[in-house]
Design a protein around this nucleic acid. Sequence first.
DNA 1: ATAAAAAAATACTGATTAGTAGGTTACAAA
DNA 2: TTTGTAACCTACTAATCAGTATTTTTTTAT
Lengths: 195, 195
Amino acid sequence: MKKAAATRLTILQKAFELIYAQGYQATSIDEIIATTQVTKGAFFYHFKNKDEMGLAIIEEILKPTLTGSFIQPLTSNENPLKAIYDLMYYLLIKDKFLKPEYGCPAANFTHEMTSWNTHFSKALNELTGQWMQVMTQALERGKKQGWVGKEVNPRQATLFIMSGYWGIRNLGKLGNKTYYTAYLKELKRYLDQLR
Amino acid sequence: MKKAAATRLTILQKAFELIYAQGYQATSIDEIIATTQVTKGAFFYHFKNKDEMGLAIIEEILKPTLTGSFIQPLTSNENPLKAIYDLMYYLLIKDKFLKPEYGCPAANFTHEMTSWNTHFSKALNELTGQWMQVMTQALERGKKQGWVGKEVNPRQATLFIMSGYWGIRNLGKLGNKTYYTAYLKELKRYLDQLR
DNA sequence: ATAAAAAAATACTGATTAGTAGGTTACAAA
DNA sequence: TTTGTAACCTACTAATCAGTATTTTTTTAT
């Protein structure tokens, strides 16, 4: 029971890395099993097809990561505007797993899968929805505590901030890493204007 | 000489539509020639391989469109903040060619190709660079004319705005079209704060 | 220890992929 | 009208793809 769970996890992790760097469709099962040293029989024992593996990656790799790195920092009781900026700074500059040239895993998935696979859309919608909800709540809390201006619409602002993050992650692929720092400066400006 | 140019253009246009809806890798040459009624021999007479066709789409379809719809509206001498908002409103709401569920063609290409094909990166970088340059210039002009605050950094603001646009185009794929209107409202707020 | 079931290995299939080889038609200039 | 070439067509290939059938090994329960 333990060894099996380990190989399953190995497949998911290695596959995730490959997909993050190359895209879902460009990553073949043959390539996954070659880099994991797992045979095809073992692969299809754990996943009945490629898409089921893709969904498992979202559920078992992406979602826990999101909860840890993207959501928890927004649940504190400090100034949400500061928390949001710090989070973005961390994600764009500090985090050594997310690479500019590969963009954002969730955004990549969304881009690639949404138009043809509704299961993926649903799973990804939950993913982003969760993040947006937490950020919205943080801004609402900030309003009550006086950190955030009364005229601010939390849901609207959240959407705006998230759009910016998704966009800069994609734009950042086009080479210039200075994009990130310039983006962050303007993000700070924008956040300051929310009071 | 004329018939040939016509078939070439047909291929590019139909292929663009398919790729816009499905992605580059998911669109096979066989599918392209099936929908265009062009034979494989004709296809490979006009393009020496699939990637060359992809680059031709960027150069001959995407770039001219960009110039017409994305750039020209920013070259007027009116308030650039209004011009930017109107442009975004047009692109997100009015334009009937760009569909929410398919996102932005240029962003899609970037997402899918950048990490593994440097030729595409270069072409796409030119594309976005051109748009950013024009928007930056519009904001600089606006500063001189008093439309835009003196403390505003045009390049920085442009990057921020473009990030938002690319991001909302991608987020918009996840179903809810109300994302667009909420985004536009907050964009207005942001633009107003640039004076 | 042994039977049963779980996990993994091997070797394959049929479909699809990008691309090619070689021939045919259409059209221009001479 | 002939001839050369641009444009196009048909039929194929080799590689790769996701997925399967069958067998073997490993683990677990008794």
